[in-house]
């Protein structure tokens, strides 16, 4: 792996305008992804993970406003591209496994035909070659080849999710954004697909942004991890570092409450308090109403960045400073 970045995101802000006010879903996010690298994005439901993904692909609903920032993919700033120019990049250079995967297949076409269409629109393979490629892709995601000729309604939930993964891989993009790609899959199929995706990633030097709530899957798949809270990245660093020595109290809470199938069955804990209201964010550090370490500064002032080598977090009271407890 080289450190040459495929994607550089700088101060990205994307807000939704609603009748009740402005939802600050992506609120000043910066990060880079190196070629061949996997970045994991984790964070509470509703914190803005899918919004980042949709902003990177410029697939935004009408009420979304790109407020500021740049998205540089292979030297090209995607924010300056027209929709026509953008269409040439999608699938081919940057592709996505949507979170609502089950919904993103067209119900009236056979699944195989939908993948062939994506292939023919973006690459040279057509006819027999395309069919051959679809068979390969189905094998990769553990789908029986007889399903190539079936319609989406004949698929189970997890089968549809696998078809979408196959489609995202079809054109061998530079970077693939996978939004909860394996939530509907059993662990055996998940294991197989993750291994296959990692193999493809290595052979093509493809990069990946992997969004998941499953800390165990992130640990297996990702080289670096970013932790989001209320529209902002609050911690970022090499996965081994972040898991072993979290700096932000929110990250620490995420790590500790993990239920396991093995060992002693301990009581599950929840984070106290309520998820933040993105229409009306708390002042200072948005996490302060729920934070066990909060002090007066946290309630009034934006927290500083604490840097530990290539691992950083934004917090007034870094937990690793306090002896880790």
């Amino acid at each position: 792996m080289t450190t040459d970045p495929v994607l550089v995101v700088e101060d990205l802000k994307m807000h939704y305008v609603t009748r009740a006010g402005t939802v600050r879903a992506v609120d000043g996010v910066s990060f880079a992804v190196a070629r061949g690298q996997s970045l994991g994005l984790v964070g509470e439901s509703g914190c803005g993970k899918s919004s980042i993904a949709m902003t990177l692909l410029k697939l935004l609903p009408d009420n979304a406003r790109l407020v500021s920032g740049s998205i540089i993919l292979n030297g090209v700033d995607l924010t300056t591209l027209s929709e026509d120019q953008m269409r040439a990049h999608r699938w081919d250079r940057i592709s996505m496994v949507f979170q609502a995967a089950m919904n993103s297949l067209d119900p009236v076409y056979r699944v195989g035909d939908q993948i062939i269409e994506a292939l023919e629109a973006h690459s040279a393979s057509a006819g027999r070659d395309a069919m051959e490629r679809v068979r390969e892709l189905f094998d990769l995601v553990s789908l029986d080849p007889t399903y190539i000729r079936r319609y989406p309604h004949e698929y189970s939930g997890g089968m549809r999710q696998r078809a979408i993964i196959a489609m995202a891989l079809a054109c061998e993009p530079d970077i693939i954004i996978a939004d909860e790609p394996t939530t509907a899959l059993d662990v055996i199929v998940q294991d197989h697909i993750l291994r296959e995706m990692q193999a493809i990633q290595r052979s093509l030097n493809m990069s990946m942004i992997y969004i998941s709530h499953d800390m165990a899957v992130i640990a297996e798949v990702c080289d670096v991890v970013g932790v989001m809270y209320a529209g902002k990245l609050v911690e970022f660093g090499p996965t081994t570092e972040v898991y072993a020595r979290p700096i932000h109290p929110y990250t620490k809470a995420l790590m500790s409450a993990f239920p396991s199938v093995r060992g002693e069955k301990h009581d599950l804990t929840t984070l106290p308090g309520e998820p933040p209201d993105l229409l009306d964010l708390p002042a200072g550090c948005a996490f302060h109403p729920r934070c066990a370490y909060a002090t007066d500064e946290c309630r009034t002032s934006i927290p500083p960045t604490v840097q530990r080598g290539d691992h950083w977090a934004t917090c007034w009271n870094p937990v690793d400073d306090l002896g880790g407890e």
Partner: peptide
């Protein structure tokens, strides 16, 4: 096949294939 939340951990390849009939 259940993954563990530890980036240092490695799991052996499974004894059965992921393929579905």
């Amino acid at each position: 096949a259940v993954p563990v939340p530890d980036p240092e951990a490695t799991r052996d390849a499974l004894s059965i294939k992921g393929s579905v009939s």
